[in-house]
Each structure stands twice: as C-alpha cells, then as structure tokens.
Computed example of a mutant assay.
Amino acid sequence: MPTVEVTDLKDGDFLLDVREDDEWQEGHAERALHIPMSDFVARFGELTEAAPQDGRVHVICRSGGRSAQVTAYLVQQGIDAVNVAGGMQLWEAAGRPVITDEGKPGQVV
C-alpha cells in the first residue's frame, strides 16, 4: 500500500477526504475534495474531473483504514494514489488547520 506521512504533505498536494458527511462537517482540510467512501464508486467521475492529471491523489479519512481501501481501488484503476497514514487524527495532531465549511476552526471526530 503506497503511504505518505502527514508531515510529508505539501500545501499544494491534492487531498481526497473519504470520511462521511457528518465527519466532514465537523472539520476538514481546507482545499480537500470530499467524496464519502460510501458514495465513492457512484461519484468517481468527480475525482477524475478534479484531480490533477500529472499529480498524485493523497487519500485521507479519520485514521487511515477507509482511505487505505480507496487508495487500493484507485491504484487498481491506474491512478497515482497514496494513503495518508494516521488520517485526519494525525493531521490535526500535527497542527495542520482543520476548518468547517464556513471557514471556522473545526475538529476531527
């Protein structure tokens, strides 16, 4: 499983958040694309439209389990994807910003 640490992510890296809507609403990374794992196959086209053609997709969830499953699927589809180890829990612990849709400080649940 291709994996990357939160501390290795750069500000411009493309981030795909696969947590459910209620988790996303409590707090997320500012420029992440949100496609819940439960809707992922049906909404796969949104990823292909938004993802950089020559870049990597960094997949994140709460702790790394769901994002690992989505990463494996993307790799099978020929997409350069990596799982973000520790997910949003380590994102928040590393001091990375977590916001709500309104741009206010959020939290990881």
Rank of each mutant, 00 (worst) to 15 (best):
P2F: 04
T3W: 00
E5F: 01
E5V: 00
E5A: 04
E5K: 02
V6L: 00
V6T: 02
V6W: 00
T7A: 08
T7M: 02
K10W: 01
K10A: 11
D11K: 11
D11T: 12
D11N: 15
D13P: 03
D13H: 08
F14I: 04
L15K: 02
L15T: 02
L16H: 02
L16Y: 02
D17R: 10
D17G: 11
D17N: 15
D17Y: 06
D17L: 10
D17H: 08
E20C: 03
D21Y: 08
D21C: 04
D21Q: 13
D22R: 09
D22C: 02
D22W: 07
D22K: 09
E23A: 15
E23Y: 08
W24V: 12
W24H: 11
Q25K: 15
Q25D: 14
Q25M: 12
E26I: 05
E26F: 09
G27W: 13
H28E: 11
H28R: 14
H28N: 12
A29F: 04
A29G: 09
A29M: 10
E30V: 15
E30P: 13
R31F: 08
R31T: 14
R31N: 15
R31E: 13
L33C: 11
H34K: 13
H34D: 06
I35Y: 07
M37A: 14
M37E: 13
S38M: 02
S38R: 04
S38D: 05
D39R: 14
D39V: 04
D39Q: 15
D39F: 11
D39W: 10
D39H: 13
F40M: 11
V41D: 12
V41S: 07
V41F: 06
A42S: 09
F44I: 14
G45R: 14
G45M: 11
E46N: 13
E46A: 10
E46K: 12
T48L: 09
T48W: 01
T48Y: 03
T48F: 03
E49D: 13
E49C: 04
A51M: 15
A51C: 12
P52W: 05
P52L: 10
P52C: 08
Q53W: 03
D54H: 06
D54W: 04
R56Q: 10
V57F: 05
H58K: 05
H58A: 04
H58P: 01
H58G: 02
V59A: 09
V59H: 06
I60K: 00
I60Y: 01
C61Y: 03
C61R: 03
C61M: 06
R62E: 08
R62F: 07
R62Y: 08
R62A: 11
S63F: 03
S63A: 15
G64M: 09
G64H: 06
G65T: 04
G65Y: 00
R66F: 05
R66K: 15
R66P: 05
R66S: 06
S67M: 06
S67G: 07
S67H: 05
A68L: 14
A68W: 03
A68P: 05
A68S: 14
A68G: 14
Q69W: 01
V70A: 07
V70M: 07
T71H: 12
A72Y: 06
L74D: 10
L74E: 07
V75L: 07
V75R: 12
V75N: 09
V75A: 07
